[in-house]
Design a protein around this nucleic acid. Structure first.
Lengths: 349, 349
DNA sequence: CTGAAAGCGCTTACAG
DNA sequence: CTGAAAGCGCTTACAG
């Protein structure tokens, strides 16, 4: 049983296909008395559903938004996806999703598939490293932009399209000030890879803010931008600072991990060493991922409105001028202090 | 600058459009010596990208799989999405995603949009209640199936299409046996709404298994199928069992919460009451969601391979006969015992 | 093996 | 306001 076509509806309503099209699928034209009703009735009776593929071909616009994220199972990305989803729906668009699991071949392939499907816009969300800006992806995007496609990147240093960027640097600085305010004077940093800009910005914002107050981190250790990266960095950091359980009277260093998942990994590592947060070591993260809600100890962090980021990306993607003008939109962060950074022991005077 | 069309490639290669089509986009035909190379060269030089919309129209197949989940930001669903994604990619399909945030109007709308885009298959993943099987959705799906569409539901009691179902009942029973094995004899249950089949199956599997050993839960309390539902149920349960911190020598009841998120909410509630897990009360959940990894205390649970579930759903969606035959595929669970159910205090003899 | 042509289901100037 | 017709970019019997 073949699907009902527009022509079927038109015939049943006793009008031309053109008229049926105008009644059913937008158009400012006002049809004559009763005509619209007749067409709509016919469509309802037949159960007509417009073929979006055919419409796309005729209109040269698909209503599709391509979205590539590095890992859909990561709460950071799934929140962004939620925002994209919601905004796309309000705008009457549909989202094509691809989760690359951080494989750049898959990313390139996804983008070209999106282009093949003539997505009206493509949103790239990930933590790309500045090094791996591969030529092919760049060339595909360039051609896509020429063909009137829109590209929006979130949180990545890409040389084309519009961008929505979390204010990593400024927000990390605010976190540093808040921690100083709490009385902390001894800091350490668990950073990410040097070529992930997000990680670098956060580290710099934090360290530079400390510097303005004459404070310098005791140690800095880098790890992968992941839970396991935080875990192993934390072990090395514990060794470097000679952290030991219950050394009352000593200083309690405050560690800034450049992402929540790294911070969570770090806490797990310390727990395995018998260290207690915040008694033996304090810690703060970044992102305020949803899963933090029931984490113990509760983690000080910086909240980014991930859903908001997704929504803004769609807004830019729908704005003709934005991507052409290479617009950058900044999303602020909000410092949240929780148990993990409570300074229990005061540094001996 | 308009996109390059197949005709452009054909002209440049000095062949007909038909030949170019056959060379570039599949077809078993073997072209003559050199022809294929010439066409491919022309395509490469011009940067030709096939228009998938036009292909879909001509082929009557879009290569699109529509996926609707109830909440993409929930780790349960995002893991399923990851599996769907991966399997779809291997099969050369693209996924259209919709996260409904549990709004059934949005779900219906999403399905009809997917149908409009002529998705080859639609996968419905959620925790639908048996009551809200709305007529419109059902009618849309019926027509879609008639038009050669495939429908796969995961974990839902829907009267059409194929289904992949976690073996909730059997796995919960295994959990019960494992807990008995650990020495537990005093149980309680935090269940879900009576019209969510997943919740009911898990509760029944657990309680019935206990019954075979002559054990009956001391209390059963139901809550929303969510973190907050677990939280408030846990408070009532604590009151019902008169749980108090550190009552050494007393029994330690073991509570089965029908999902991990409910269990996590329950633990949070107990913590607020000063109760310690597993010393004052033991608990086990269901799902083994990824975020459990660093939860303290570590939670006993039943692992469902969520990614696997997503992959199987795609396999069914791609199988013509499966959805017609209303096939049900079952995915087993695996019991994992962790700290939260360790029985420290032995019941006085 | 290759090509001319019809057809997929819509939209939209262009006439009337 | 309405309709006939061309066109969107492909695929695929059907001839040759």
């Amino acid at each position: 049983m073949a699907a009902v076509r527009l022509q079927d509806v038109a015939t049943r309503a006793g009008v031309s296909q053109a008229t049926a099209s105008r009644v059913l699928n937008g158009s400012a034209r006002v049809p004559g008395e009763g005509v619209a009703d007749r067409v709509r009735a016919a469509a309802a009776e037949l159960g007509y559903v417009a073929n979006a593929q055919a419409q796309a071909l005729a209109r040269a616009s698909t209503g599709l938004i391509g979205l590539v994220v590095h890992d859909i199972a990561d709460p950071y990305f799934s929140s962004i996806v939620q925002g994209v989803q919601a905004a796309a729906r309000s705008a009457g668009k549909l989202v094509l999703l691809s989760s690359t699991q951080r494989d750049f071949d898959i990313e390139r392939e996804s983008v070209s598939t999106f282009i093949s499907h003539r997505a009206d816009a493509i949103i790239l969300a990930g933590s790309r490293q500045s090094g791996d800006l591969d030529r092919d992806l760049e060339k595909d995007c360039a051609r896509y932009l020429d063909n009137n496609g829109k590209v929006v990147v979130v949180g990545q240093p890409l040389p084309f399209g519009a961008a929505v960027e979390p204010e990593n640097h400024a927000a990390s600085a605010q976190l540093a000030y808040a921690l100083l305010e709490q009385g902390h004077r001894d800091f350490a940093v668990i950073g990410g890879p040097g070529n992930i800009r997000t990680a670098v910005d956060r580290r710099n914002g934090f360290v530079e803010a400390l510097a303005t107050q004459g404070v310098t981190p005791l140690v800095e250790i880098a790890g992968d931008f992941s839970r396991d990266g935080g875990f192993s960095a934390a072990r090395r950091l514990a060794a470097a600072l000679e952290l030991r359980p219950g050394r009352a009277g000593d200083i309690t260093p405050c560690v800034f991990a450049v992402s929540d998942v790294m911070a969570i990994g770090a806490i797990a590592a310390w727990r395995a060493l018998g260290l207690t947060v915040p008694d033996d070591v304090c810690v703060a993260g970044f992102d305020d991922i949803p899963t933090l809600r029931d984490h113990v100890p509760s983690l000080s962090t910086v909240a980014l409105s991930l859903v908001d980021i997704g929504e803004r990306a769609v807004a830019l993607a729908l704005d003709d001028s934005a991507t052409a003008a290479h617009i950058h939109e900044f999303v602020p962060g909000r410092v949240i202090l929780r148990d993990s950074s409570i300074l229990r022991r005061v540094r001996p005077a």
